[in-house]
Simulated assay, not measured.
Amino acid sequence: MMKLNIEILKNLATDQLLEQENIPCFCRVAQEFEIIFQDPFPEVVGVVSDWDRRELEKRAPAGGGGKYTHYTNGMVTLKEIGINQYEIKNLSLFNRISGWSSIIENGIYAAPKDFWDEE
Rank of each mutant, 00 (worst) to 15 (best):
M1L: 09
M2E: 06
M2Q: 08
K3A: 06
K3S: 07
L4P: 08
L4W: 03
I6G: 08
E7M: 12
I8A: 05
L9T: 00
L9W: 05
L9A: 04
K10H: 02
N11T: 10
N11A: 07
N11I: 09
L12E: 14
A13R: 13
A13E: 10
A13L: 13
A13G: 07
T14E: 02
T14N: 01
D15F: 01
L18M: 04
L18P: 02
L18R: 11
Q20M: 10
Q20T: 07
E21C: 10
C25M: 03
C25I: 02
C25N: 03
C27K: 00
C27H: 00
R28G: 02
A30I: 15
A30Q: 06
E32T: 14
F33D: 11
E34A: 12
E34K: 03
I35T: 07
I35C: 02
I36N: 11
F37S: 00
F37V: 06
Q38G: 13
Q38F: 13
F41I: 01
F41V: 04
F41Q: 07
V45S: 12
V45W: 04
G46N: 02
V47L: 04
V47F: 10
S49I: 14
S49G: 14
W51C: 03
D52V: 09
D52N: 11
R54P: 01
E55Y: 03
E55I: 01
K58F: 08
R59I: 08
A60Q: 11
P61W: 03
A62T: 14
G63C: 12
G63F: 15
G64M: 10
G65T: 15
G65R: 05
G66Y: 06
G66S: 11
K67I: 12
K67G: 05
Y68L: 14
Y68G: 09
T69P: 15
T69S: 15
T69N: 15
H70Y: 11
Y71C: 05
T72H: 01
N73M: 14
M75N: 07
M75C: 13
M75L: 15
V76H: 06
T77I: 13
L78A: 11
L78C: 13
K79T: 13
E80K: 13
I81R: 07
G82M: 08
G82F: 07
N84E: 09
N84S: 12
Q85A: 09
Y86L: 07
E87Q: 13
E87P: 11
K89Q: 13
K89F: 11
K89M: 15
L91K: 10
S92A: 05
F94S: 09
N95P: 00
I97W: 03
S98W: 00
S98E: 00
G99Y: 01
G99F: 00
G99A: 01
S101W: 05
S102K: 00
I103A: 04
I104F: 04
N106I: 05
I108H: 12
P112C: 09
P112S: 08
P112L: 01
D117C: 06
D117P: 09
D117E: 08
E118H: 04
E118I: 11
E119A: 12
E119H: 05
